[in-house]
Each structure stands twice: as C-alpha cells, then as structure tokens.
Simulated scan of single mutants.
Amino acid sequence: MKGILGLLRHKSQPGPGEEQLDSTLFTTAFADHGLDTSLLVPWEARAVEVGASRLNPGRGTKLLQGLWAKDKYMRQLNDEAIGRMEHFLDFATVQANRDIIRQDEYGNFMVVLLSGSIAIDRVQPWGERLRLAEAAPGEILGEMSLLDSGMRFSSCTTLNDCEIAILSAEAMDEMLSTDPALAASLIALLARKLSLRLRVVSARLSDKK
C-alpha cells in the first residue's frame, strides 16, 4: 500500500513550473481498450432504467460504516475515512427484480449493498442460468470492471428492495486527485478482496481435479 500511495502522491503533486493535472486513470481506461464507448453502461443510465430513487447520503454513510466495521478487510477504513468517501459516492434505493449489473456489458461503476439481498447469476454458454451467490449487506459488486474496464462476468439482480452505494470511474478519479491517501487505501483493499476471491475459486477448481 505504501508503494501505491507514494505513486499517487508523485502523480498528484506538480513539479516546478507544472500545472496540477487531474487524474483520468479510471475514466479513460475503457477508451484505452480501443472499444466503442457506446457499449459502456454508466450508473446514470442504469439508474434511470431501473427506476432508482435517491437515498439520503447521511443514512447511506452510516449504513456503510456499520457494515464495513464488521468486514475483515474493509474495517481498515475507519468511520472518518468512510465519512470522507461520502463525497465520492452516490446512494440509491432500487426495487426488487431489477438488474443493476448485467453479464457481458461494459460498466464503469461498482456497487456496495447496504440493505437487502442481490442475486449473482451467470448464464452458461448452453443457456443455463447459474446462481453463483446471493450478496448480503456490506458486499461489493462490480469492482473488477471498475478496476480493469473489462466485461461484466455476471448479472446482479435485486431480490427485494435494496439500498446501495455506487462508486463510478469519474468519482474514483476525483478521489485520486483530491484525496490520494483514501484512494490508495480503497484500491489496495479492493485488490486484496479480489485476490482472496480468486484464491477461493482456484481452490475449488483444484478440488475437482
């Protein structure tokens, strides 16, 4: 984490005679893949599609603080740090049976489930819809596409009315520019959780051999 933080500090501080440059690391990542940006589904478009309503940021932040305080990894972000995150997050309520993320689309946002439950499904090549998991409050969804601008691996559908927090690529870039210490901590924790998830999958595959 210190290495990441050092890099961010170096990038965010202009040298003598240089102007401050805004970070666009996450915002431009999708375009850097050489893909048609019309394929991108941002949260603003999905929110309209699913009829999301605005959630009070104060309530959303309190829910997030309580949930992440119980998480083995995310509790490293204390209440003060999560309070600073409120500026960069959108908070919404989504009704049941709404796809907030769809398999094989390109998205530039991640979601944190604050209340309710979300089904994580993947349609197999032969057409079967496989239930991979059901996300509980506190879990993060879609972070892989936020980090690498790749296609969504699965669909995430609300099973009941859900409250969620959303972090977009634009907001991530703003965090990198204005609060690099917070951004570095969040990115490191997301990477750690992704690594753990991959290790679990690898272990399952090894058991089947």
Score class of each variant (00 low, 15 high):
residue 38 S to K: 14
residue 153 F to S: 14
residue 13 Q to E: 13
residue 34 G to R: 06
residue 135 A to M: 12
residue 103 Q to H: 01
residue 69 A to E: 11
residue 135 A to Q: 01
residue 46 R to G: 05
residue 120 I to T: 07
residue 11 K to T: 09
residue 126 W to K: 12
residue 152 R to P: 02
residue 48 V to W: 02
residue 176 L to Y: 00
residue 131 R to L: 14
residue 172 M to G: 00
residue 116 G to M: 04
residue 105 E to M: 07
residue 30 F to S: 01
residue 120 I to G: 07
residue 26 F to W: 07
residue 186 L to P: 02
residue 167 L to I: 10
residue 10 H to D: 15
residue 100 I to H: 03
residue 86 E to Q: 15
residue 122 R to P: 03
residue 35 L to E: 10
residue 196 L to V: 13
residue 208 K to R: 14
residue 103 Q to G: 01
residue 72 K to M: 02
residue 98 R to C: 09
residue 138 G to M: 03
residue 21 L to W: 09
residue 138 G to C: 05
residue 65 Q to R: 15
residue 39 L to N: 07
residue 209 K to V: 13
residue 140 I to L: 11
residue 138 G to L: 05
residue 34 G to L: 04
residue 43 W to V: 09
residue 80 E to C: 00
residue 207 D to H: 05
residue 136 A to W: 02
residue 95 Q to G: 14
residue 41 V to L: 12
residue 57 P to I: 02
residue 117 S to A: 12
residue 150 G to H: 08
residue 55 L to E: 04
residue 68 W to D: 03
residue 197 R to G: 11
residue 197 R to Y: 01
residue 126 W to E: 15
residue 162 C to E: 00
residue 160 N to T: 10
residue 168 S to L: 03
residue 4 I to A: 11
residue 81 A to K: 09
residue 134 E to M: 06
residue 137 P to C: 04
residue 149 S to Q: 08
residue 161 D to W: 03
residue 205 L to N: 11
residue 127 G to S: 10
residue 49 E to Q: 15
residue 185 S to F: 02
residue 173 D to H: 06
residue 59 R to I: 02
residue 112 V to N: 00
residue 13 Q to K: 15
residue 133 A to G: 06
residue 11 K to C: 14
residue 62 K to D: 13
residue 95 Q to V: 03
residue 154 S to W: 01
residue 20 Q to H: 15
residue 118 I to F: 07
residue 100 I to R: 01
residue 128 E to Q: 15
residue 49 E to L: 12
residue 166 I to C: 05
residue 191 A to I: 13
residue 184 A to C: 06
residue 18 E to Y: 05
residue 34 G to N: 04
residue 45 A to V: 13
residue 191 A to H: 07
residue 149 S to L: 01
residue 2 K to D: 13
residue 56 N to C: 13
residue 170 E to S: 08
residue 161 D to G: 10
residue 117 S to I: 00
residue 108 N to F: 00
residue 67 L to M: 06
residue 194 L to V: 04
residue 140 I to N: 05
residue 97 N to E: 12
residue 80 E to D: 03
residue 56 N to T: 10
residue 19 E to T: 11
residue 6 G to R: 14
residue 147 L to G: 05
residue 104 D to E: 11
residue 31 A to D: 07
residue 209 K to E: 09
residue 66 G to M: 06
residue 26 F to V: 06
residue 22 D to E: 12
residue 28 T to H: 14
residue 37 T to P: 01
residue 43 W to H: 07
residue 139 E to W: 02
residue 18 E to W: 07
residue 108 N to L: 04
residue 187 I to A: 05
residue 50 V to K: 02
residue 92 A to S: 09
residue 8 L to I: 05
residue 183 A to R: 03
residue 49 E to R: 12
residue 106 Y to C: 07
residue 5 L to G: 11
residue 63 L to T: 04
residue 82 I to K: 06
residue 161 D to E: 14
